[in-house]
Amino acid sequence: MEKNHDHMDELWNEAHLFVLRESAHLPAGCAAKSEHTEEMEAAAAEMFRIAIQLGDRDMLAFSLARFDDFVRKGTIPPLSMLKAINNGFCTFRSSGKTSLDEAFGLRNKTRGAPARFFKREWARTNASMVSHWISEGNTLEVAVEKVAEMRSRMAGGNDRCGLSEAQIKRDYLRFRGIIK
């Protein structure tokens, strides 16, 4: 399951960054649907599809933030974004028993906490930092200590930032094979 999340995360990241980058270059008030390229429509559709398929609240929140970027700029969002949001609302409306969370795929289908995009990205970042320190000639233990120290400083010296050396080591061992 984790490898599927890694692949889906990568696809979502590509689509999200494309929409973010391209939407920044649109002039304010650009209203016609034809103003959006096929690539923009495809990327926006993929971004929402993956967020809803994975039921990842973080991905959906960022996808909706890109939608909001268009609206705040006075620009009509890509039709694929409007369709994805409309599909969620239609699902919600069609059944009196469906919540908005369920309509947008955010209900856990299994027990336990849902997988979260930011948690996976944080873990990959830890793994990447440990890998960097190992490439500089440090042992795994020293590399983990350096990452933990840096994370603690980033949290304002708060040792209760929820990140232990053991967790950083687990993150490294989990993601070391996919670090680029």
Results as ranks from 00 to 15, higher is better:
F89G: 04
T110M: 09
M1C: 04
R153D: 02
V19G: 01
K97T: 06
K3R: 13
E39Y: 02
L64P: 03
Q53I: 08
H7Q: 15
R124Y: 07
T125S: 09
R57S: 13
S131E: 09
L11P: 01
R170P: 00
D68S: 13
M47Y: 05
S34W: 06
L20A: 13
L60D: 06
S34D: 08
L20W: 11
E145T: 09
C30T: 11
V142C: 08
T110D: 03
Y172V: 01
A42Y: 05
R107L: 00
K119H: 00
L64R: 10
T110R: 13
L106Y: 04
L20M: 10
E41I: 00
W133A: 00
N158G: 02
T110F: 01
A113Y: 04
V71T: 11
E121R: 12
L54D: 10
S128G: 10
K83M: 12
Q53S: 13
N126D: 14
A115N: 06
L82R: 08
S131Y: 07
E145F: 02
F92D: 00
S94N: 09
G112W: 03
A24Q: 11
F48H: 05
A31Q: 12
M8A: 10
F104A: 03
A43M: 00
H36R: 07
A155N: 09
E41H: 06
S99M: 07
S135P: 07
E39G: 04
R120F: 08
S152N: 01
R66K: 15
L82K: 13
W12G: 06
C161V: 01
E121T: 00
L106M: 03
A51P: 10
L20T: 11
F70H: 13
R57T: 04
K119V: 04
R93T: 04
V71H: 14
S94L: 02
F89C: 07
S152Q: 12
